[in-house]
Design a protein around this nucleic acid. Sequence first.
RNA 1: GUCCCCGUGGCUCAAUUGGAUAGAGCGUCGGCCUCCGGAGCCGAAGGUUACAGGUUCGAAUCCUGUCGGGGAUACCA
Length: 657
Amino acid sequence: MNLLKELRERFRSALGTLVDNPEELLEMVRPSQDPRFGDYQANCAMPLGKRLGKPPREIAAQIVARLEWDEMCEPPEIAGPGFINLRLRTDWMATRLRESIQDSRVGVEPVETARTYVVDYSSPNVAKPMHVGHIRSTVIGDALCRILRFAGHRVISDNHLGDWGTQFGMIIYGYKHFRDEAAFAAAPVGELCRLYQLVSQLVDYHETRRRLPDWERRVAEREEAAAYQEAEALPAGGAERKRAAKRLRGLQAQAAEARAELAQAQEKLAAVERSPRLKSLVAEHPDIAQNVLQETARLHADDPENLALWHKFLPKCCEDIQRLYDRLHVAFDYTHGESFYQKHLSSVVRDFLDRGLACISDGAVCVFLDGFDTPMIIRKSDGAYLYATTDLATIAYRMRAFQPDAILYVVDHRQSEHFEKLFAAVRMWGYTDVELQHIRFGTVLDAKGKPFKTRAGDTVGLEGLLDEAVRKAHDVVRANDDAKPGGAELDGTQRRHIAEVVGHAAIKYADLSQNRTSDYIFNFDKMVALEGNTATYMQYSYARTQSIFAKGNIDVCRLRAADAALRLEHPAERALGLELLQFAEAIEETLVDYRPNLLTGYLFELARRFSEFYQQCKVLQAETESVRTSRLLLCDLTGRVIRCGLDLLGIQVVDKM
RNA sequence: GUCCCCGUGGCUCAAUUGGAUAGAGCGUCGGCCUCCGGAGCCGAAGGUUACAGGUUCGAAUCCUGUCGGGGAUACCA
């Protein structure tokens, strides 16, 4: 049962006799933040008192008088300016907990009206190794799918692969000119990655070389501007003076930034020139950038040779990506990449033009939108399509194929403006009754707050990251097992399995436990520290629940089936019981804004309550048989809720660790 | 220049969207294993929620301004 919903229903009846539309007032019934104010509180008497022109405490008394609380709560208290504090009766809680124990969904009812969700996440570019930047989309998207499904919705997960862009032009060009046949036969994806990196380095070299004068000019301009500003006499007046000083600081910062960019570009060129091999390749392929674009264009124009190469490469790339998904236990209902929508792009553009929603500007097909300075371009002046075009075609397809109530895009926050425009264009196009959400998340940063890169400046490979986490987890598992009082109890296979589970969980949890909208600082040591608010703490709590049953030789099925009473006499028992009953609320709350960190927060709180209980209440050696049984039931439900909650986050548990 | 996001103890983050004395973890200091797993528990120190105004019964949250950080800015994705 969802306690909050139940309470709000009761308040709806009570408030119905006082006001016409109690909806917004019901929002003000909520869990208390401080246990001294009870388990739940209703804050609606204050605004209502204002509206009705009566003292809030008087209103509160009227609400309480109309409220059906008797078997659920202790007598409500009115406190402060008019807070209504509610404390649940423990016998009522015990009954609800018994219901949860009998329930395979541990007390979480499916939503009354199921919606259909399309969730678009992960979306890596094939032919480029997946890196740390993909982890958030993949992990958050997967968790949201799981939570939505468990809540009772229909969910279609779709991996919108980048399988049609310029990176294919790069590897096709690379394959044609630089391939190592033996290496390709032995490890195709590794060779393709090498080719991608090589070609992009060469393209980058020429691009940098070409733009070097621009950067040099910009440094000169900015330094001049800063020098000019500095030479100006500072105005005497306070505000004027401050503004001038600020301006100077800004200009100096801009000059420094330009100098840094220039130095970086020069270093890039020097790096290539230091290598005799790269230097000669650069000289041999002066027009590589255009040629790469041409290879891409040929692919898009169904050139047989390039299409054949595409068909040759794509499955290999997908296998490679799939291996990572298997490791992470992430699965998709569909993997419709960009290539899947190619056939529809021209008709999308034509439709926009025909209906007067788009116009041609500087040779490009543009959709001008209210509130945006720049248009959304859906066809370049050279005739090529863009990802905005593909996104439009994708929405049309999804509306046709799945009739969703909502489409969620789990994508980096830097693409916010793209999605704002996209959604606005979609509304204009006529799709008005679908919820479109950009589930944005922040950038992964290093300890210095810069985007997470290797020392050489490359992005960090996802696979290596997982390996590292597992390796660190294995060290901890081994040390912990060796230190067990009765001696080590795990063999090598078990240790490796536990290390996998714990290591992957650490990475996923570190990501999910953070408010997704903020950037997050990637820190291995903290992540695998295995203490505090981490997956490991929860997994550890779970293992302790299971360990009790193993130690006491308890048949859990029989335990659940027996008609034993649940007792919540000790404060730690009551606190744990209340937390267990709030699982349904946590799930509902998580889905309001699609924020998995609310679920991790709940699970952490639950694990803490359990640790307190575990510390203070003997289970196997309880004073009486009935207390022992009651506590065993609490352990059972705790273990199940933790396991279920972690499962919704894509995290596994183990019985021993 | 314009637009968007952000600023919370030394560090990393919460705060149920306007509720009561702003909570955790890490780190620091002090307790707790002859006792079901100490990856734990209990306690202490640490805050003018960047700053200044405003809105109201009530503000970290909403509005205005200032300072600081990040991002996006027509033919990449």
